[in-house]
């Protein structure tokens, strides 16, 4: 299932937290060979994880991490503005209606629909918070995955060659995209909304009298 968790909430879910940071080490350090730091626990974490980002995480039935992505508002510090301005024509992308999406990560044994489910989660954020765009940093391999999901970003620019390429891209939200991503994820709209409510909403109606 999809969970939406802020960094400060991760400690309530240690198994999910640890497996996510370990999977990130496997993907970004071991497989892609990115210049990221892995701590003594085998966790890949960077400074942006310390800014209390919002994570969208696919939790597997055994409670571990199946895939995830990390969101921060572009009104604060972001990876794109800090490190990739040369890929955005020098435009600092900054708006409370544009969030940054980074560290799209998949567990190596995750089912193929997990990537689509994560994009669906991103769509829920856009839809519920009236966002206009996500701006994201991703590796070359993701270009194909995004296309298969039916949620290809507009690529602003890239650096590096072949599998070492890192790109910056933009997503917007449309109802068509949502329908397509729902199909690829094999999920119903109701289920997706229920998961969103469960994480970021409170099902109990507010009591007007004590």
């Amino acid at each position: 299932m999809l969970r939406y968790l802020y960094g400060t909430d991760l400690d309530l879910h240690p198994r999910l937290r640890d497996s996510m940071f370990r999977d990130r080490a496997i993907q970004f350090h071991d497989r892609l060979g990115w210049d990221v730091s892995v701590d003594a626990n085998g966790h890949e974490r960077d400074g942006y994880d310390d800014l209390n980002p919002l994570y969208v995480i696919w939790q597997q039935p055994d409670g571990t991490h199946g895939g995830s992505m990390r969101f921060l508002p572009t009104t604060g510090q972001t990876m794109v503005n800090d490190h990739f301005l040369h890929l955005t024509d020098g435009v600092e992308i900054r708006s409370p209606l544009i969030w940054e999406c980074t560290r799209f990560c998949l567990n190596q044994s995750a089912e193929s629909r997990v990537a689509a489910a994560l994009m669906l989660g991103g769509g829920e954020l856009m839809r519920n918070y009236s966002l206009t765009h996500f701006v994201g940093v991703f590796d070359a391999r993701m270009v194909r995955i995004y296309r298969l999901i039916g949620a290809s970003p507009t690529v602003l620019g890239g650096q590096g060659q072949g599998r070492d390429q890192i790109s910056v891209g933009l997503w917007d939200y449309t109802e068509d995209n949502r329908a397509r991503v729902l199909r690829r994820a094999g999920l119903s709209s109701d289920v997706s909304e229920a998961w969103f409510e469960r994480s970021l909403g409170q099902p109990e109606p507010m009591r007007l009298t004590a």
Binding site: T74, I93, S95, L156, L170
Partner: peptide, 15 residues
């Protein structure tokens, strides 16, 4: 640039 990119640049400039 694409119109999509332009929209994001305008959104950013607007803010």
């Amino acid at each position: 640039i694409s119109e999509h990119t332009l929209r994001a640049y305008i959104e950013s400039a607007r803010f």
